[in-house]
Design a protein around this nucleic acid. Structure first.
Length: 577
RNA sequence: GCGCCGAUAGUCUAGUGGUAUGACCUGAGCUUCCCAAGCUCAUGGCCCGGGUUCAAUUCCCGGUCGGCGCACCA
């Protein structure tokens, strides 16, 4: 196991990632993916796309990174991301002001208050510093908002915000998206893109950034959809449930089917995605022995979420979250349905149209209007309700209606009820949402940390990135054994031909052959081809595999075919014998 | 945001009130018939701003960035 300092040094030196704007002193929380890192990131995004979008038959969209403030007012981010911080002037410790007020005075105070409003609370209720017990004064009270704000346009100065998650872009466009899905549930919409959070203290390289890449899938399901049938498989999920966290702290290793049967996971869709994701993490080089799914404790669940599991990986003894799997209910769609002018519901036909006896009151509005004023509509709708449960109410000459404790007597003669049979073909519903939300940067960091090794070849230590061939930034290195006797020209031709065939190729003729292998080992290039003098006798070359540092002789002409089968996984190096 | 510590070639480092050590890397050449060999040469550096001083990479102040701790992480 090699530590993160070595990994960070490698990342800088070989162009995986490094902090941005270094020439101007840098800016915390912003990173550059260099040539190797950008290629790796692109491969990982494509792998995610193949697994979670194309493989599942979902849609992918791309929405703006800036949206107007009403979007975030509706989503709750404008209030939820805006917190008040108070600092003890004696011991310099900072706290969430609303949390202190809640804990010290059992007051439930929304965090959606201004500094001025909160100062009024402080004048009524004093707060003491939990660590040094001094009384806190309001001069240190300050606001911070985790969203980046900007002004849109020259004249109007319309406030806008950089999105703190890609998900809202999908929710906001739901009315059109549901029509593209031709009104059928379930359907999934995915997005891969950058999000922005003005973190208080970005730390630890790629693990907490201010600009980061998310791959999010929003699966829209019918509220009564209990999820797909989960067939028994061999994929074991390392689960760290609430009860395990409370008790002995060990993981349960069970299949998705078993987890449902044993009631560790309650929702089939969540179980489905945990299993799908486990296979994906394995395929991209996450070490499943340093991996777990941790269930959110009840107090860390977002108020709208009914259940949530985080995928976490262990790096240098710390567990970091790389993906959140949440059941968000209809929270987001209902918010936008209420705040926007659009309809975010879907019409879902019943299997069988339902017949319903509908009562029309046909009231004399020239009586109800003048008599009851604004209460008239409420009274009529109440009578309508009463008529639904008791069709005899019109038999008496007077109907008593209770509105907020006041009894209103209505003369039946002002109503002329008729009944008719209507057909109800379906209902308008707000779909529920299952959301797997992947943090691409943290996944990249985890893959690098888990595939970074130091080992020994012929007594020499080497750095090795054991990246899976499918995501390695460079797929193959092509070398002439010596830069003479035309070997270099043959190598150049082969490299050029492989590039045309769509392989990511490095051609290197500098230094010794061993040095070139080591250069490729530390950036994770899985295969190297070397052209030596035997080529002139039988047109064979050597093919070398990274992890084992072993090689075989193969026909030069068969290299493209062999590499393709290694790339798509239809064969492995050991198959080639 | 707070506290402590730090910042010297691409990377890792030595050192200094008078422009800086070494290694690795990288490039060119020689050598070399498969795993970081050797030789020669070359490129490249004191985080930013202010102060003290004849002179600051060095001392002082502030900032930025980084590590750790606290807090925060809808």
């Amino acid at each position: 196991m090699t530590n993160v300092d070595d990994l960070n040094e490698l990342a800088k030196r070989r162009g995986f990632f490094f902090s941005a704007n270094d020439s101007y002193g840098g800016l915390a929380g912003f990173y550059v993916y260099g040539p190797m890192g950008a290629a790796l990131k692109s491969n990982i995004e494509n792998s995610w796309r193949a697994k979670f979008v194309i493989g599942e038959g979902h849609f992918e969209i791309s929405t703006p990174t800036i949206s107007p403030s009403p979007v975030f007012k509706a989503s709750g981010h404008l209030d939820g991301f805006d917190d008040l911080l108070i600092t003890c002037s004696t011991c310099e410790t900072s706290y969430r002001a609303d949390h202190l007020l809640e804990s010290q005075h059992t007051l439930s105070q929304s965090s959606d208050v201004s500094v001025q409003e909160f100062k009024k609370f402080l004048s009524m209720y004093s707060l003491t510093c939990p660590s040094c017990k001094n009384t806190l004064d309001d001069s240190t009270l300050q606001e911070f908002n985790l969203m980046f704000a900007t002004k849109v346009g020259p004249g109007s100065q319309t406030p806008g915000y950089l999105r703190p998650e890609t998900a809202q872009g999908i929710f906001v466009e739901f009315p059109r998206l549901s029509s593209y899905a031709r009104g059928k549930l379930p359907f999934g919409v995915a997005q891969i893109g950058t999000s922005y959070r003005n973190e208080i203290s970005p730390r630890k390289g790629l693990t907490r950034l201010r600009e980061f890449t998310q791959a999010e899938l929003e699966l829209f399901i019918h509220p009564t959809d209990i999820g797909p049938t989960i067939a028994p498989t061999t994929t074991k999920l390392p689960l760290y449930s609430v009860s395990q966290q409370k008790s002995n702290g060990t993981l349960e290793s069970v299949t998705a089917r078993e987890a449902l049967d044993q009631n560790i996971i309650s929702n089939r869709w969540l179980a489905y995605y945990l299993e799908l994701s486990t296979d994906w993490y394995n395929s991209i080089g996450i070490d499943l022995n340093r991996f777990r799914y941790r269930q959110h404790m009840p107090n860390e669940l977002a108020h709208y979420a009914s259940d949530c599991w985080d995928a976490e990986v262990e790096i240098d003894g710390d567990w970091i979250e790389i993906t959140g799997f949440a059941h968000r209910g209809n929270y987001d769609l209902s918010k936008h349905n209420t705040h926007s002018s659009d309809d975010f519901t879907m019409f879902i036909p019943f299997d069988e149209p339902q017949k319903k006896i509908q009562t029309n009151l046909n009231p004399d509005m020239d009586y109800f209007g003048p008599t009851f004023g604004k209460l008239a509509p409420e009274i009529l709708s109440r009578i309508d309700e009463m008529a639904t449960s008791n069709s005899n109410i019109f038999d008496s000459s007077e109907i008593n209606v209770d509105i907020n404790g006041t009894i209103h007597s209505i003369l039946s003669k002002h109503l002329h009820p008729t009944t008719e049979e209507t057909t109800i073909n379906g209902e308008h519903i707000l779909p529920h949402v299952i959301e797997p939300s992947f943090g691409i940067d943290r996944i990249i960091y985890s893959i690098l940390a888990h595939s970074f090794h130091e080992d020994t070849i012929d007594g020499e230590t080497r750095f090795l990135l054991s990246l899976p061939p499918s995501i390695a930034p460079t797929f193959v290195g092509i070398f002439p054994l010596l830069t003479r006797d035309n070997l270099d020209m043959i190598a150049q031709d082969m490299a050029s031909n492989l590039r045309t065939s769509g392989f990511s190729v490095t051609h290197d003729e500098s230094g010794s052959i061993g040095k070139r292998y080591r250069r490729q080992d530390e950036v994770g290039t899985p295969f190297c081809v070397t052209i030596d003098h035997q080529y002139f006798e039988d047109h064979t070359v050597t093919l070398r595999e990274r992890n084992s540092a072993t090689q075989i002789r193969v026909e030069a002409n068969s290299i493209p075919t062999i590499l393709e089968s290694l790339r798509n996984g239809s064969s492995t190096f050991s198959d080639l014998g």
